[in-house]
């Protein structure tokens, strides 16, 4: 199956180094402390942040840090075939854990001891790269909630098909069975905070593929910064400044 045509175009018309179209919106859920919608191509994800607030379960309270909890759920209609069990299956649990660890590493939790921060991510449409979209959405939501962070966490995936490194795989390319590298990246301090890979890849090629994903993350970081700047300007405007 040809994923990259000899003319250098992928199945959907992108070139191998190009990402899908991204779109982000802050403040989708009014009731939440912070929320954001993040779209990467056809993958659409809503993230809502509640916190910092009082810890619900006293036994879990940490005395010098905030408790970060995360839940990832997919809507019934998010995938092509209708899913029966949207929560609690193993994949959701694993992704929840991954997102939690990634965000926890960059939130300045010591500033909010004995409190709890809840991050809820809901996938509305899944078309490959859901993990990355969730992390990006969570970053935006946290920023909207005003929670102090070390840096923005951005994430992007890349793969290797037909002997070409590809950036930002969609569902068809993902299910091709080739390797899939997901990278979570802190752009300002230039550090990788999440790295996951499926399938097999020789080491020399792996470096290229990871580098490509990091470039993708940097591009997303720029976009996120723009969105936040835009949002702040809007807030200023509404306040009448």
């Amino acid at each position: 199956m040809e994923f990259v045509s000899p003319e250098g175009l992928r199945l959907d018309g992108r070139r191998p180094m190009e990402m899908r179209q991204i779109r982000a919106e802050i403040g989708a859920v009014a009731k939440a402390d912070g929320s954001a919608v993040f779209e990467m191509g056809n993958t659409k994800v809503i993230a809502a942040v509640y916190g910092p607030r009082e810890v619900q379960n006293r036994t879990q309270q940490i005395n010098d840090q905030a408790l970060v909890r995360c839940e990832y759920s997919m809507a019934n209609f998010s995938t092509g075939d209708r899913m029966r069990k949207p929560k609690g299956d193993r994949r959701s649990t694993e992704i929840s854990l991954v997102i939690r660890q990634t965000m926890e590493a960059c939130i300045l939790t010591h500033l909010m001891p004995r409190s709890q921060i809840d991050i809820f991510v809901q996938v509305l449409q899944a078309d490959g790269g859901t993990r990355s979209a969730c992390i990006n959405a969570a970053t935006l939501a946290l920023a909207d909630a005003g929670i102090p962070m070390r840096d923005l966490v951005t994430s992007c995936s890349s793969g290797y098909l037909n002997s070409t490194p590809l950036l930002d795989l969609n569902y068809v390319e993902d299910s091709a069975g080739g390797p899939d590298v997901t990278v979570g990246f802190l752009p300002k301090v230039d550090k990788v905070t999440l790295l996951q890979m499926d399938s097999k890849l020789p080491i020399d090629i792996f470096e290229n593929v990871m580098q490509l994903a990091i470039e993708g993350c940097k591009a997303i970081a720029n976009y996120i910064r723009e969105i936040m700047l835009e949002n702040t300007k809007q807030l200023e405007y509404r306040r009448g400044i």
Binding site: D12, Q21, N42, G80, D81
Partner: peptide, 25 residues
């Protein structure tokens, strides 16, 4: 880049609606 969502239908016993992106360059 310009995105255009493209709708296709496939068979397989059940009806499956599939949406694919189609970028115009």
């Amino acid at each position: 880049l310009h995105s255009k969502t493209f709708v296709k239908k496939t068979r397989g016993g059940k009806v499956n609606k599939q949406v694919r992106e189609h970028y115009l360059r």
